[in-house]
């Protein structure tokens, strides 16, 4: 009896611990959502002249839906551009003339890569390079342009 009770409590403890692990994996980290279930994935590389504050593991979205993650960010000294490697869920195929841009969710939110699908019949394949990109909006540049633009406009009106 004593031994059975002890076994019962230990069993309950281990079961609670494993249940907590499963809860952390499925509910908190949302493991079911993307890729981790061994789903097929493919990678494309994109050249950006400025990536702003893009981070590794930032989401890749199309029409607002997360379809992949940023796998790596590097710098190509030959062309002086940032090279971003994107890992995209194999269920989603994009036309070869789709374009990429770095967007910000909200005014101060995280930056992500947006895909605007093109119209080509061919799709991106694993290892493709994408040139059709637009850079991140850098707030400082924007403010600078805005100030200069206004100054020029004032001169022209005089």
């Amino acid at each position: 009896m004593r031994r059975q009770l002890l076994d019962f409590w230990v069993g309950l403890f281990v079961a609670a611990g494993i249940a907590a692990l499963v809860f952390l994996a499925l509910e908190v980290a949302d493991l079911t959502h993307l890729g981790w279930r061994g789903g097929e994935r493919y990678q494309v590389e994109a050249e950006f002249s400025n990536i702003g504050g893009l981070k590794v593991r930032a989401p890749v979205k199309s029409a607002g839906v997360t379809v992949g993650r940023v796998a790596a960010i590097g710098y190509d000294p030959q062309i002086h551009k940032a090279v971003v490697r994107l890992e995209i869920d194999g269920r989603y195929r994009f036309p070869a003339d789709s374009s990429l841009s770095i967007l910000t969710s909200g005014l101060l939110g995280e930056q992500y890569v947006g895909i605007q699908p093109g119209a080509d019949t061919e799709t991106w394949q694993d290892g493709d390079r994408v040139w059709l990109t637009s850079s991140a909006l850098v707030l400082e540049n924007l403010v600078g342009e805005f100030l200069l633009g206004r100054g020029g406009g004032g001169d022209g009106a005089r």
């Binding site: 403890f13 281990v14 609670a16 611990g17 494993i18 907590a20 692990l21 809860f23 952390l24 908190v28």
Partner: peptide, 15 residues
């Protein structure tokens, strides 16, 4: 064995 299990329980209850 017990420490990671207790940690997982701690995480879940804390959340």
């Amino acid at each position: 064995l017990a420490v990671p299990l207790l940690t997982a329980i701690f995480d879940v209850v804390g959340i």
